[in-house]
């Protein structure tokens, strides 16, 4: 079982979510965050705007579905770049994948050691 943290541009969030739905991945958590990447925000003369609005998606998947989900997110973020302002394209998106040892569903109080049945 793996946990995907995808930090993507705010503008492409809905497109990424729609693409994940088409791929059959519905369960996710989203949160609004701010931050900047290697481009250090938008430089504007001597000052820079470093609090760029971003969305963070948290998705927990079985091991064999992680590669597919990462591919879907990456393709859709790249495709949505064309519609963005030039300034937004300075900021890169990031995907992190971490381990999940155990997962519980509160409604049934069941634990899922079997990664196939998240």
């Amino acid at each position: 079982m793996k946990m995907i943290w995808a930090i993507i541009q705010y503008e492409s969030t809905q497109m990424v979510i729609d693409a994940l739905e088409k791929a059959g991945i519905h369960a996710m958590t989203r949160m609004d965050v701010t931050g900047y990447d290697v481009a250090s925000g938008i430089p504007e003369g001597s000052i820079g705007y470093t609090d760029m609005p971003k969305s963070m998606l948290m998705i927990v998947l079985a091991d064999n579905e992680v590669a597919r989900a990462v591919k879907v997110i990456r393709n859709m973020v790249k495709a949505s770049m064309k519609n963005h302002l030039v300034a937004v394209n300075h900021e890169k998106s990031r995907i992190f994948v971490t381990y999940v040892e155990d997962s519980y569903t509160i409604r049934t109080a069941e634990t899922f050691a079997d990664p196939e049945s998240i």
């Binding site: 381990y99 040892e101 997962s103 569903t105 509160i106 409604r107």
Partner: peptide
């Protein structure tokens, strides 16, 4: 503790993940 307090039996109760 979290499960005992949050369990209502209806969908939407939530999930717990444990990461190293």
């Amino acid at each position: 503790t979290i499960i005992r307090l949050n369990k209502t039996g209806r969908p939407g109760d939530g999930k717990i993940f444990i990461c190293p």
